[in-house]
Structure formats: structure tokens, C-alpha cells
Simulated assay, not measured.
Amino acid sequence: MMRRNTLVQIGLLAAGVVLVGIIVVTIWLGWTGRIDSRTASLVIGGVSAFASASLAIATYTTVLQNRRTVEELQKDREKPLAQDVLRQLVAPFKQQIEDHIDRMESDYPPWVQIWNTYGEQHATRFYQELSTDRASDTAVRKLRRDNPDLMKQIDKHNQSVRDVEETIEALLSRLDERVEVLLGERVADHMDINDEEIRVLSKCVLQGYSQDASSLYATELWEAYSGELQELKDEEIVAELSNTRSDYYSECQSIRDALLEYKMEIQQQYGISESDL
């Protein structure tokens, strides 16, 4: 950019020398009588007008180039922060949402988290909030300032996750009551069954596991009564799960597209490649 400004200055100097030369020659020709005074005046006037126009164009070009220089310098200063926004927020959020979508597209999307008898977690639920806790405050502020609509979508997504959690908790509470009634009718020492074991069985019913539990006793109960327990998951619960998944799936697709669009926009604006992330 500085080279361009130098070339413009050299061009202006050269043009000025040429125009001054034309005016001097015209005056000399008029003084010696080789051209009349009217012609000399017209030539000088035309050259002066051309010089004024050229100066105006050159001034505008210089101002425009200086503005571009300032913008480029500003971009260079902001690029590290833009990279932080992509690394700390946009890229991980996009990956997380894509993982959610992949889980929802499976035959048995994980609605709940259950630990088996060996203490191993059985899948991770597909609905989780997009957290900014690990991002710097400056990165969060830049994203909120540059793209408030995207931040609103993120906030809306997180609220939707909380709504899904409430829905699942309500369904589990409904199943807890049914499981407790069923076991009271089938198990002689049902009074020894605690709330935690009932909740594990309710999760198994909701998720549709063939066999999974957090305690040996609950595992034995599931093995013995899984057929009857599964019948507690009626059409109303199935429909509510289906509607909840459908709504959340649509929202995830929308925010994924918004994150991708913003990511591409920032990369193009600041010249950030995938290898820079």
C-alpha cells in the first residue's frame, strides 16, 4: 500500500512538470507571436482545468488508499482476537452441535445417562448447553458485539436444552410412579427398593435399554421384569419424546448453519485459514 502511495506521488510530480512545461511553452509561443493570445489563453485554461481535475482525482485516490491502509492495519490488529473467537467459541460450538445431530440421527438417541454395574457411563445425552466458560471474556464480547443475532441463537439453544431437561425429568417422574407400582405388585420385598434404583429402572424404560443399571439389585430387577417395565413406556411418552427430538433437531440444524456462515465470514474477512485454527 505504501508503494502505491509513492507511485501516485511520483505520477503527480511528473504530471505537474509536464503541465508546467506546456504552460511555459504556450506563454513563450504567445510572447513570440507564433500563436495569438486567444489561443494561448484557451490552451492555458484547458491545461489548468485538466490539472485541477487530475489533482482532485489524485487526492481522492490517495485518501481512498490511505483508508484502505488503515483498514488493513486494523484487521491485522484484530486478527488474533478473531482467531480466538473461532478457536474458543465458533469451532467447538459447531463441532458440539454436529455431534448432537449425529446422535439424534441414530436409532436410539441417548436421552439419559446411565452407569452400568462396572461404573461405566452408557453414552452421553445428545442435548447439552453451549458453554462459554472456557473462552476468554474478550472473545465472548467480540462475538456478542459482532454478531448479536448468533449469540441470541446460542442463548435460545441453551434455553431449549433446559426445556428438554425439564421434559425428560417430568417423564422420568411419571415412570418412577409406574415402576414403583409395578414392583410393589411383583416383588415381595419391594419395600427394600430405594428411589435411586427406581430411577435407574425408569431411565432404562425411557431409553429402551435391553439391560443396564447402576447397581446389581437393579440389574436383577431389570432382567426379571424388563418386559413388563418396557410396557410402561406408552404411546403418549413415545410421542412426547419424538416431538421433543424433532424440535431440538431443527434448532440444532439452524444454529449449525449460522455458526458455519459466521465462521466462513470471519475467515474471509481476516484471511484466516483452517490451519490457523
Rank of each mutant, 00 (worst) to 15 (best):
S226V: 03
I97Q: 01
G208D: 07
L73Q: 13
K156D: 15
K263C: 12
A53E: 08
R199G: 04
S106E: 06
R145N: 09
Q121E: 08
N66L: 07
L175D: 02
Q9E: 04
I27D: 06
E274G: 01
E105W: 06
L182E: 04
R67N: 04
L183P: 02
V25W: 10
S254M: 11
L201W: 00
I272P: 04
A239W: 02
V112S: 10
S242T: 08
W28C: 07
Y270W: 00
D146T: 01
I101F: 07
V200E: 11
V18A: 15
L172I: 12
A58E: 05
R77P: 02
A135L: 08
V85M: 10
V47Q: 04
M151H: 00
R77T: 09
R38C: 11
R67M: 00
P92R: 01
R162S: 14
T117W: 13
I22K: 08
L183R: 03
H122L: 12
A40Y: 01
T132G: 08
K75C: 06
A170L: 11
K94W: 01
N147W: 03
I272S: 02
K142L: 13
L86S: 07
Q121D: 06
S173V: 06
E223L: 12
D212V: 14
G227K: 03
R141V: 10
L130G: 00
